[in-house]
C-alpha cells in the first residue's frame, strides 16, 4: 500500500501544480452560469421593489431615478450594495420583468464600497446590454 501512495506522489512530480498563481496569473475560470455581479437594467425595471423586499441581506435599496422613464411609473430603481450582497440571486429570480443583468464577474474587492448605482444608470443610454 505504501507503494500505491508512492506511485501517486511520483506521478505528481511530473504534473503541473494544482494551485493557481493568483493574482499574478489571472487564469481563474468559473463554471458557466456562475452567480457573479448583477445589476438592474433600467430600460426594463418598473421600480416594483420586490427585489428589495425579498433581499435576505438588505443589500438592495430603492433610489430615485435622475430622469423619468416611461415604464417606471414609481420613479425608483434598485441599487445593490456588493459589500452586503450574498449573491443568492433571489432578486434575479423574483423580478417580474427579468430586469437584472447577470455577469460572471467575481473580483469585487476594492478600497471603495461598490454599488450597482453607476452601472445601472449607464443602462439608460446604453440600451441595457452593457
Amino acid at each position: 500500500m505504501r507503494l500505491a501512495l508512492l506511485r501517486e506522489i511520483l506521478a505528481n512530480l511530473a504534473r503541473k501544480p494544482a494551485t493557481l498563481k493568483y493574482p499574478v496569473a489571472r487564469e481563474v475560470t468559473v463554471a458557466p452560469g456562475f452567480r457573479g455581479k448583477h445589476y438592474a437594467d433600467l430600460v426594463k425595471c418598473i421600480g416594483c421593489s420586490l427585489c428589495a423586499v425579498d433581499c435576505p441581506a438588505n443589500a438592495i435599496t430603492m433610489e430615485k431615478l435622475p430622469q423619468p422613464l416611461k415604464q417606471n411609473q414609481r420613479g425608483i430603481f434598485p441599487v445593490v450594495d456588493y459589500g452586503k450582497c450574498v449573491f443568492c440571486y433571489q432578486c434575479v429570480f423574483v423580478c417580474p420583468v427579468k430586469a437584472y443583468i447577470v455577469t460572471e464577474v467575481f473580483e469585487m474587492a476594492d478600497h471603495v464600497i461598490g454599488t450597482s448605482r453607476d452601472i445601472s444608470l449607464s443602462t439608460i443610454k446604453g440600451g441595457g446590454s452593457a
Partner: peptide
C-alpha cells in the same frame, strides 16, 4: 466545480425555492 456548475456557486448552493428549484 460540479456544485458550481449546477447551482452557480461552489459553496452556497441557494438552489432551493419554495415550490421547486431556482435553476
Amino acid at each position: 466545480y460540479l456544485k458550481e456548475l449546477v447551482t452557480g456557486n461552489r459553496v452556497h448552493a441557494d438552489i432551493h425555492m419554495l415550490g421547486g428549484v431556482k435553476r
